[in-house]
Simulated assay, not measured.
Amino acid sequence: MKLFNKSAIVAAGAASLLVLSGCAAGGEGEVAEDPAPAGDDTAEETTESDAPATDLSGVSITVGSKDFDEQLILGYMLVEAFEAAGADVTDQVNLGGTSVAREALVSGAIDTYMEYNGTGWVTHLGNSDPSFDPDELTEGVRAQDLEENGIHWLNRAPFNNTYGFTSSPDATEANGGEPYSLQTMMEYVVDTPDAIVCMESEYPSRDDGLVLMEEATGLTIPEDQRLILDTGLIYTETAANNCDFGEVYTTDGRIAALDLTLVEDPGVNILYNVSVNLRDEVYSQAPEAFDSIVESMLSPLDNDRMAALNARVSAEGEDPRAVAADYLAQEGLLAE
């Protein structure tokens, strides 16, 4: 069983450097501690005072997630880290789509999952005109969701898993091997009646979906050129030239694995940085511990790191819980 490094970790900075209190660094991934002299009560008190920074003993928490690979990895990060910190964890990872996960959180069927700031602002809180500054957007969502629903948004990962499009090999070749922009992609689709754009079922109807691209470019994808597919099929069918363009998540590991070309986005699609959503009645039991664990977990996750983790599941077939545990071990949040 993997154990949380409770006595060593007190906080993570913006670069996820672990601050070790009362300890000297030992070998790689290890901490060398001077043993306390027998009867030295001061040393014992120091150890005990460090524990609350990461100790979730006595906390019961139900963890959920949405149903795609990135969310499975993120959900299992929470399960593994909270279990290692001493919490009694109920695993409800892989609940379903966005609306299912959010309803479970609001109703109390789960206590936590990871959600994206753009989704929170537009879909869950019903706002428009989201900020394109990640800190400003997250702070706006954080304040409103806490006041209206008692839900905390803890930390913010650097990676931005926004909507995007990839072009098929044939479509890329038709563009001279260069990436399309959203504008030139839409022009190609309109000028090429047999061009097919593959999308997930909810993307054309979401307020943060297709409408943003059509408004920005002034062009509309004809109905007979739209093909609705499951998420995973979009990547493989685009790589096989059965979709000229495929709607994707920009941190998905299958983009690089299938040698797909991302369409360049000048800032049309809104931001999707992830935070941990946590109900107030659970957060208030151990706020320092939750803040410390979550910051250590999310701060290193930039686009490249998240895409590499996603690729291990989506392209290489690894188990998402094993990938999550491996990442946490690398960051010092689980014992090797």
Score class of each variant (00 low, 15 high):
S205V: 07
I73W: 01
P37W: 02
V248S: 12
D145T: 10
W153E: 13
N117I: 06
L328Y: 13
I270E: 13
F4E: 02
P134S: 13
I73G: 03
S201A: 11
S292G: 04
A84F: 01
Y163Q: 08
A289K: 00
A101V: 15
V141M: 08
Q144H: 03
D145L: 07
S131H: 06
E288Q: 04
A257N: 06
V122Q: 13
Y76N: 11
E247S: 10
E318G: 12
S275G: 14
L333N: 10
F290N: 00
A322S: 15
Y203K: 04
N127V: 03
G108H: 07
W121V: 06
F245T: 02
V100H: 03
P320E: 13
E147Y: 05
C198N: 03
E200N: 09
Q71T: 14
A87V: 00
H124E: 14
D50H: 08
M199Y: 04
A8I: 04
T119N: 02
A143P: 08
G86F: 06
G13N: 14
G86S: 10
L20V: 15
E48K: 08
D326S: 10
T123I: 12
F165H: 02
S107C: 02
E103K: 08
Q285D: 11
D91E: 05
D67S: 14
G58F: 01
D191P: 01
P179R: 02
G39R: 09
I293F: 12
A216D: 07
R254P: 01
T119H: 03
A43M: 13
L125Q: 09
G75D: 08
S201D: 13
V190E: 02
P204L: 11
D69A: 15
I234R: 00
Y163G: 11
T192V: 14
K66G: 15
A239D: 06
S275R: 07
F245E: 06
P179I: 04
L278D: 07
E288W: 00
G150E: 09
F132C: 06
E288Y: 00
F4Q: 00
E173A: 12
D252P: 07
A38F: 08
N155L: 04
L278H: 01
T236P: 02
E80A: 12
D319Q: 09
R102N: 12
A171I: 12
E136N: 03
A32L: 13
S181D: 14
F82Y: 13
I221V: 15
D319E: 15
G13E: 14
S16L: 04
E80S: 08
G86H: 04
A256F: 03
I270A: 13
A101L: 15
G150P: 10
A81P: 05
P179D: 05
L219P: 05
V122I: 15
E200S: 14
T261P: 09
